[in-house]
Design a protein around this nucleic acid. Structure first.
Lengths: 245, 245
DNA sequence: CGCTAGTTTGAAAAAACTCAATTGGCGTGG
DNA sequence: CCACGCCAATTGAGTTTTTTCAAACTAGCG
């Protein structure tokens, strides 16, 4: 595990992206109690039905949210990149209605709900910033529905790549080549396609010169065209602070 | 439009379901500024890209959230039933990343963001109750992904019916026959299927004795079996107050 | 009574899946 | 350092699911 920033600094950088917090508020954030923990690839962090009392701040690596069908099929509901808090919703819905797992080795900052709640009670602006994060998470899920439901295989795969690119770019991790150790099986379960379809679609996109995928790294050669193919509009990620009130 | 409760009382009933607010807090809720407005069937309430300054409390009728593809296909992202606030997320994300429309004549209570925000600033418990509502909305969207992505047509349709049943039941609207004026075209765009498929699937479910659909009303004859077919687990709706902390 | 929106049904076409086999890359143990 | 083994990627081919297109039917409404 390479060296990495203090978890709280990553959180602060994330919230600063939109919330415009003041120094005193940042200082309060720094009082949050954080435990760092490393998890292995494919390790489950929490499961459907669990009651949890901590939030996980992702410091390094990739996590996924997922649900299963009775037949054992997986559906990945979102990817998480460093800076995200994939289970922030447990603050108010402590019973997990899906599972959380690492698809790469990952480093997490465990923050007790209690610690966050006390901070939220002291400071509404921090609370609102966190609320806003959960709303963006919801917006991503909604767009995922449209993607899986109404886009072609080709557009779906492109869309997922665009979203990952945009979100990694927002935390400074989209410098070519983009490290993206996600297997084609993961892509398949994310976009509700078969591995075969994912493989063929990636090949097509590669042959058209839009992307290169090699050794768990991706290079986007033509982002504009990729976004066009994906019918991708980054609005739903609410990354642009100008979109705020 | 038949007579209906005061919008705020509907909101209070909804929040009481889980938040356990005190009388003084309910009194504060009653100070919210609410404008009642009726909208016609198929009327758009807000569109992708709009910046809005009010939240819409649904008093009567059904609303949908939807997004479009370039090819003009629709994807319905959720249904809303009386008591819901479909655009509560605009409180912190005022730019709509999807559209909101009525699929039946509907009555809405328009509440200015400002009014809600002031209340939230005065009272954290109310703020948390509203935050929680937005989190449930997100949970519904996530489960929708699994439904659309990994369930068969049969299970998808059953799942949608189960969800509607559970949510209508939670507000006392699930007494047989259940009034559900949703066209098959709407169902199709919700579950990412064609109208043909919806029609056939409904026929199958009817012939198996699970449901009856007639004249915009539905009767569920065998909820347990319908839920089994749907792989439906109501956990994600977080309706059970015992699930709270 | 005719119109329209919505439902129902049939049949061909398209998209995506499953199954199966092969290839490639990489870490580990001999 | 090489061989083995395993996981992931790739490719081919037949099958299944779902869609699309088209047409007929039905019920409510002016």
């Amino acid at each position: 595990m390479p060296k990495s920033l203090d978890p709280i600094e990553i959180l602060i950088r994330r919230l600063q992206r939109s919330a415009g917090l003041e120094q005193s508020e940042l200082a309060e954030l720094r009082t949050l109690q954080v435990d760092v923990a490393d998890v292995a690839r494919n390790e489950a962090i929490s499961r459907e039905g669990d009651r949890v009392e901590h939030c996980m701040l992702l410091v390094e690596g990739f996590l996924i949210r997922l649900q299963h069908t009775r037949g054992g099929k997986r559906q990945i509901l979102s990817f998480y990149v460093p800076g995200d808090i994939p289970d922030l919703q447990t603050l108010h819905l402590p019973t997990m209605d899906h599972s959380l797992a690492a698809i790469t080795p990952a480093r997490l900052g465990r923050i007790p709900h209690k610690s966050i709640q006390e901070l939220c009670n002291r400071n509404r602006r921090v609370a609102d910033a966190l609320w806003r994060e959960t709303l963006i998470d919801a917006a991503v899920a909604r767009t995922w529905v449209r993607c899986v439901g109404r886009l072609t295989a080709r557009a779906r795969v492109a869309h997922m790549l665009c979203e990952l690119h945009a979100r990694l770019d927002a935390v400074g991790l989209a410098k070519d080549p983009i490290r993206m150790p996600i297997t084609q099986a993961d892509f398949a379960d994310a976009m509700s396609l078969s591995v075969v379809q994912i493989n063929m679609t990636l090949r097509d996109l590669r042959e058209e010169g839009l992307i290169t995928v090699h050794k768990r790294e991706m290079i986007v050669h033509d982002l504009v065209r990729l976004q066009y193919v994906a019918e991708f509009d980054p609005l739903y990620l609410h990354l642009d602070p100008a979109q705020r009130r």
